[in-house]
Design a protein around this nucleic acid. Sequence first.
DNA 1: GTCAATTGCGAAGTAAAGTTCGCATCGGCC
DNA 2: GGCCGATGCGAACTTTACTTCGCAATTGAC
Lengths: 125, 125
Amino acid sequence: MATPKNTSKDNAGGDREDLGRLGAFIRSQRRLAELSQRELAKLTDLSDPYVSQLERGLHEPSVRVLKSLARALDVRPQTLLSYVGLNDLGTSDTPAGVEEAVLADAGLTDTQKQALLEVYRSFLS
Amino acid sequence: MATPKNTSKDNAGGDREDLGRLGAFIRSQRRLAELSQRELAKLTDLSDPYVSQLERGLHEPSVRVLKSLARALDVRPQTLLSYVGLNDLGTSDTPAGVEEAVLADAGLTDTQKQALLEVYRSFLS
DNA sequence: GTCAATTGCGAAGTAAAGTTCGCATCGGCC
DNA sequence: GGCCGATGCGAACTTTACTTCGCAATTGAC
């Protein structure tokens, strides 16, 4: 930590202990699917030593990797994300179903989504 | 993009185009909050050149960074994740819909809601 | 027994995420 | 004019994610 700015604790960052739990979960799910590390690596387009390292909690995988793992292990991406600490965090009072609803709408093109959101945000300000 | 624009290709990996969208979103949200890059950097415990790079879509941020950004910009983490492509898989419980979300939004006046929905419906046709 | 194939992991490397420092430009203020 | 602080970004660096290669310990076939 290059910033000794801890005037308050504010542990918003990822916790190292979470990585261990994520790794344990990945390992158990892999075994449940009767896969070897190499097989899972091939499914997820990763290297097998990296799968090994992930299972032992040595790294915090990127969202790209998490997504790929979720698909291969047949769990929801949210489940993996929760281990990295992204499903709590109350988000104060932004009710904002609008943002997500717009983004999730399959009937809109990306440009249209962007335009809609821009209007929406301008209203909020 | 979080949209099922998937014609044929398996879009499991990260898409570089998404990064541009994410960056644009971060930038617009930051400006909406009347923050400079340096201020946002301080809020998120990041460096300001990195914020700059993110806004221009040069990097795919880690979940730790996404989480921190979501908190500082007062948006839901899911919203940012959707830009990186992590909400269109699994999760069949897609949220209610744009119409309901707009109507339920407490930050909008009735006239604004009406205007938004008009734009939305025009896009659909 | 030995051989081949498979499993999990350590070590050293490459690529990408993230930082520190500094430059150039845009205001305001005198 | 010149000076100041603030803003956004480029370049070089450190740190971390991720790969390539290889080794030791199984397992099973012969």
